[in-house]
Simulated assay, not measured.
Amino acid sequence: MNYGARNKIKATVKSVKKGDVMSLVKFEVTLPSEMASVLTTESCEELNLQPGDIVTLIIKAIHVLPVKE
């Protein structure tokens, strides 16, 4: 899949906090030391994000988009 965003960072899922509509996923990265993303719970469940998963963070404007490979 191609993305318009050019900034990509490899990260490890640190924690997942699911809500009814939105979920907060925190990531551990080398630099900066931590990032977070708020996404719909549906997207979080579709990606099946779990602590310890390795993902690529795609940064565009104010959004951090996790992509599980």
Rank of each mutant, 00 (worst) to 15 (best):
S33W: 12
N48M: 09
T12D: 10
E45K: 08
K18P: 01
L57R: 03
L47I: 07
M35A: 06
E28M: 10
K18E: 15
H63Y: 13
I62G: 07
K14G: 10
Y3F: 14
K10N: 14
G19C: 08
L31G: 10
S37L: 05
E34L: 08
K8H: 09
S15N: 05
D20C: 05
R6A: 13
S15T: 04
G19Y: 08
E28W: 01
Y3Q: 12
Q50W: 01
P32N: 00
I59P: 02
L57T: 09
G4V: 10
L31A: 14
P51M: 04
V29A: 11
G19I: 06
P66L: 00
V25C: 02
N7S: 12
I54T: 15
L47F: 12
M22R: 12
Q50P: 01
L39T: 02
I59T: 13
H63L: 12
A5D: 15
S37C: 11
K26I: 03
I58C: 06
E46F: 03
G19F: 07
G52C: 09
V13E: 02
F27N: 00
V38Q: 07
I54V: 14
V25E: 08
I59N: 10
I9P: 02
K17V: 07
V29R: 00
C44M: 11
N48V: 04
M22P: 03
S15W: 01
Q50R: 14
Q50L: 15
N2T: 09
G4A: 05
V13G: 07
I9T: 11
P51N: 11
E46M: 13
V21Q: 10
V55I: 13
N48F: 05
V13L: 02
A5K: 10
L65R: 02
I59M: 15
N7H: 11
K60Q: 15
I9K: 06
G52E: 11
V38P: 01
S37K: 06
H63S: 14
A36S: 15
T40E: 12
S33C: 13
V67H: 00
L47A: 01
D53E: 04
V25H: 03
E45N: 12
K68P: 09
H63A: 11
M1N: 01
H63T: 09
T41S: 13
I54R: 15
I62M: 09
G52L: 09
I59W: 06
T40F: 06
L49Q: 00
S43H: 07
E28G: 05
A11D: 06
S15F: 02
V29F: 05
E69M: 04
E42D: 14
P51R: 09
V13Q: 00
